[in-house]
Nucleic acid binder design. Structure first.
Length: 226
DNA sequence: TCATTAAATTGTT
DNA sequence: AACAATTTAATGA
């Protein structure tokens, strides 16, 4: 991973929202922010945790999931490099509603709740960013509900992958994702076998390129509308 | 650098 | 779920 070496300060400076902050605001963010390496399989946060931080993926891959009463795991979506999340719980000041688990070793940035709220109250541009972020996420979940109603696994994988590469949610991500078909299956709620078939359907359609342990997006727009 | 082996991932049933 | 084939990573000469 090339990102593994860039310092936290630089990763923060490269974010979309950093561009709209004043130098003074950015200075405080740099002072307050911290980072942690979350091992594969470990939790970044758990349902019921207090929303003490706004979180960003510096490098790696996370999944947001929940466990139903009978113990079955449900995955909602994934977060990859460049993604920021957790603002919903802070805004509503309620406990976290999901588990966030690392699918592989992942560097996570932590912005304290107080700093986040200070930005919210002092920066018009930051509000604008958040509005776009929430709107983009709403679109993702509308799409999720939609493909949940149709049983076509090919379309489900297509939308799921498209959601991962939403440019609004993951601006600095390359059009390539290092992920096994098994991991992707966890994110899409499809079996590994079915994920494998769907990927080849999508590859034949010219929308993606599937290689060993990674996939490349060729046509994001068509993936969305598959 | 090359060959061998183990581990991970993929393709198929 | 099980199995075989393929790719990558690790090891040592």
């Amino acid at each position: 991973m090339t990102n593994a070496k860039i310092p936290l300060a630089e990763a923060l400076a490269r974010t979309q929202w950093a561009a709209v902050l004043t130098p003074a605001q950015m200075e405080r963010v740099q002072l307050d922010a911290s980072e942690r390496i979350v091992k594969a399989g470990a939790h970044v946060c758990t349902r019921g945790d207090p929303p003490d931080y706004w979180l960003g993926v510096i490098d790696g891959l996370l999944k947001m999931s929940s466990v139903s009463h009978d113990g079955k795991a449900i995955t909602f979506t994934g977060m990859l490099t460049g993604g920021w999340f957790g603002e919903g719980s802070i805004l509503k000041n309620e406990m976290r509603r999901y588990d966030v688990v690392a699918l592989r070793d992942t560097r996570v940035a932590f912005i304290p709740k107080q700093t986040f709220q200070w930005l919210l109250h002092s920066s018009f541009g930051f509000n604008h960013f958040l509005l776009n972020q929430l709107n983009a996420r709403l679109g993702v979940f509308v799409s999720l509900v939609e493909y949940d109603r149709m049983l076509d696994a090919d379309a489900r994988v297509a939308r799921c992958v498209a959601a991962l590469f939403d440019p609004q949610l993951h601006p600095q991500g390359e059009p390539r994702l290092t992920i096994s078909q098994e991991e992707l299956g966890y994110l899409c709620s499809t079996s590994r076998q079915r994920t494998n078939q769907a990927l080849r359907v999508l590859e034949n359609a010219g929308l993606i390129k599937a290689d060993y342990g990674e996939i490349t997006i060729l046509d994001l727009e068509q993936l969305r509308n598959f």
